[in-house]
Amino acid sequence: MNQVNTVVLLHTVLHCHFTSADSIENYLFEHYSASMKPRRNQNELVEIDIAMTIQTVLKVDERFQYISFYGWFEVQWRDEFLMWNETEYQGIKKISVPYQQMWVPDISMYYSEEHIHDLGVHPFVSVTSQGHVTWFPGAKYTVQCYLKVKKFPFDRQKCSIVVAAWQTTDRMQKLVPRARSVNEVKGIAENGEWEFQNFTYEENYDAEFDLTKIVYTLEFQRRYRYFLLCTIMPIVILSVLNSLTFLIPVESGERITYCLTLFLTFTVFLTLFDQTMPRNSIDVPYITVFVSFHLFLCVISTMVSILTISSKRGQECDSRDTQIVPLESQGEDLHLGEVNADGKRSGSSGKNYLRRTLKSILKEVFICKIDTVMLVMNFFFLGSSAFVLVICYIS
């Protein structure tokens, strides 16, 4: 019997509560107009308190220059038309109503790809008996963000999220950012690629359009360990290998293949950068310039190797096809002759002999010394480019 009485009493209380809530809603919205400013004096300014929370960052796209994240806003204002006496409605202090039925502030997220004229969707707003309204719109936001990738992968980024009215001025409503007591960065879910460092806001007044813009700034830094192991170290190793090209003997016949392999590897890295980095000429990554420079050195090494091998082959052909022997001496003049491969002798002057000998010596010197010169030059350019790269990163 007691259980039956309890159920009946609970049903009665809930019925009275919902009946009272319906009565409040009918009372408030009987003559309510959602197009009117929530002030009995329509010339009075409406202050909108707003706070933003980022829940998790989904993607930071360097190539297309945008950031995508889940977040929500806490928007508060006072509506003088939505007030009631609690004692007349069984002490109900707060109700929830669909936001389409009431006046909501004109707030837009600038430079957004999806939610330009609204802050997202939340079907209900809460209203207190004193007319204080709280709204929690939220969504997945995609905002344009200019990313500076010069110091990739040791870069620090700042993304600005601009929130302001779209077609109303500060004479009608004014956005007032509300500070939170907790650190907003700690509330952002951890990301494997980016480390979030700070989340701040500031007010900017636009005198041209007579409105206040709230600029939220998210500061974050790239976690560089993965890129250091998978990008920077392989590029440095390839650069060292490129400098060792001229230690390979010409007689081995592998130098050209070695150079072309390095050339293709550098090209692959440039292709990877092209697929991830933004295609602009303002902030070209330093590491891309470094790879392009060593790609150019690889081309120079390939060209010099081709000339060296060509000279070596030409010298071998000359020494195989022709033998130079002395013919006779007449007076003080030295006459020489050439014995061809078929054993026939043809006469030539001593001047031709000296010219041919000098040419042979120069070829031998070129082949012997060019490798040493190019080896020293490659190591010089490697050290210089690495030094400049480090200076650019720490500056």
Rank of each mutant, 00 (worst) to 15 (best):
R279N: 14
S252V: 06
F227C: 12
R313C: 05
P278L: 05
D283Y: 11
T308P: 04
E332P: 01
P278Y: 07
F227S: 13
V291F: 10
T261F: 08
I287Y: 07
F290Q: 02
S310C: 03
S319D: 11
L211D: 03
V240Q: 04
A207Q: 13
L262W: 02
S311M: 11
A207S: 13
L262C: 03
H294N: 05
L327H: 10
S239N: 03
P278H: 09
V250N: 14
T257F: 05
T265Y: 00
F296R: 13
S301P: 03
G314D: 12
E219V: 08
I324T: 09
T308I: 15
R255Q: 13
I300A: 02
V236I: 12
S243F: 06
E332W: 07
G331F: 10
M233L: 14
L297S: 05
N280W: 02
D321A: 09
L264A: 14
L295F: 13
R225F: 09
Q315P: 01
R313Q: 08
T276P: 05
F293L: 10
V250C: 06
K312T: 08
I256T: 03
I235H: 02
R313I: 11
V268K: 08
F209H: 12
Q275R: 13
M233Y: 15
R225T: 13
P285C: 12
D321L: 15
G253A: 01
S281E: 04
T302W: 06
V291Q: 06
E254H: 13
R225A: 10
F273N: 10
V289T: 14
P234Y: 02
S311E: 09
R313L: 10
S311V: 08
Q275I: 15
I309R: 04
I309S: 09
T308Y: 12
I282S: 07
C230P: 04
L262A: 03
G314W: 12
F269D: 00
C298T: 14
T276D: 15
Y258M: 02
S239A: 11
R255D: 07
D206E: 08
S311A: 11
E251T: 13
E316V: 10
T245D: 10
E251V: 07
F293Q: 07
D283F: 12
H294C: 01
I248W: 00
P285A: 04
D321S: 13
S243C: 06
F220H: 02
L307M: 15
I248S: 08
L211G: 03
A207G: 08
P326Q: 08
S281Q: 09
I300D: 07
T271A: 14
L218N: 01
L295V: 10
I237S: 13
I235E: 05
V250Q: 12
S243G: 07
F296H: 11
I256V: 03
T322F: 08
V325F: 12
Q323S: 10
F220R: 00
Y226Q: 14
S243D: 03
R225H: 14
L264W: 10
Y224F: 09
C298V: 05
T271R: 09
D283R: 07
P326C: 06
L327Q: 05
T245M: 04
F227E: 13
M303F: 00
K213L: 03
F290N: 04
Q315H: 07
S319E: 12
N242M: 14
S329K: 15
V268G: 05
L247M: 11
S301R: 00
I214R: 04
V325L: 13
R222H: 03
P326L: 11
T217Y: 09
R320S: 09
L241K: 08
V304F: 06
S252D: 07
L238T: 01
